[in-house]
Amino acid sequence: MKLDPAVQGPSRPFGRDARTPLALRCAAAVTVLGIAAVFGFVTVYALPVLLSGQGLAVLSWRWLPAAGQFGILPMVCGSVLLACSALLLGWPLALCLCGWMHGLGPARPARGLRQLVHGMAAVPTVVYGFVSVFLLVPLVRQAGQGSGLCWLSAALVLALLVLPTMVVIMDAALREQGRALRLTGAALGLSPAQVFAHVMLPGARRWLITAGVFGFGRAVGDTLIPLMLAGNAPGVPASPFDALRTLTAHMALVMSTDAGSTAYHSLFAAGILLLAVSAGVSLAVRRLRGTGQDSLPDAEWRP
């Protein structure tokens, strides 16, 4: 067995030619197989729907199962609207929270806030939904017209749900920067708030975008919040107090109501759309975070 750390790098003294134990190979193979199966099965079932004549029927604006019309475009629209509005509320909030932890607020309570955010990430989605149904929905009902199960309620809670994800990513990047910049900034006579606003913020732009993209992926993929709070009427909402239905909630509803095999086609179409969006988000995040020197190790920021 050759031992040449200088060539192989310090982390692998034995190089690549040492044999991998069979069990580890099997584990890696099972993982790859599972991933391939997820993408393969959903694609195999969705492609015939999209490529055949039914494709046009699925990509229309009308969802009237009784009349044989199974269009999912209102749900696509609902998913995009809800995710974007949640991001519009949640991203600035996450940025401000990170600012408070990194110079805009007092230093000591910042640790408490960080722990609170980690705690929020540990709360199950369904608990968010359950509490909101009885706490937030009555308030929205009083503020607007209708039942309170609407775009606004879902967007507010979804923003809160994706907040920890984004804060963790931004926080990791800002902490790296802060380590390098705090003393320099202080030596130049800048207050911590000035360092944050004029130096750290522009420097962390890439990570702020990464956090936004990641948050968008989470918001599009979430099922329970829209299912419990958005009202689920299959139409395009005209105001924040109107109900909407997302792709994810649509899938859950179609499965639970057993609407027959034609409705299942829309299920697979919705599935492949979501899969494509999530894959796009993953690739974008991978590209954004880069592999160069300024990238962070996975463990630092992965929520």
Binding site: T31, V38, A252, L275, A279, V281
Partner: peptide
């Protein structure tokens, strides 16, 4: 490659994972 595959899987929404289970039963 394996890292990319794991990342792709990490992004898959849970309802799509449910759909995968459903297609498995159909198969």
């Amino acid at each position: 490659h394996l890292g990319l595959a794991v990342e792709l899987l990490a992004g898959v929404p849970s309802i799509v994972m449910g759909l995968f289970g459903f297609t498995l039963i159909l198969v």
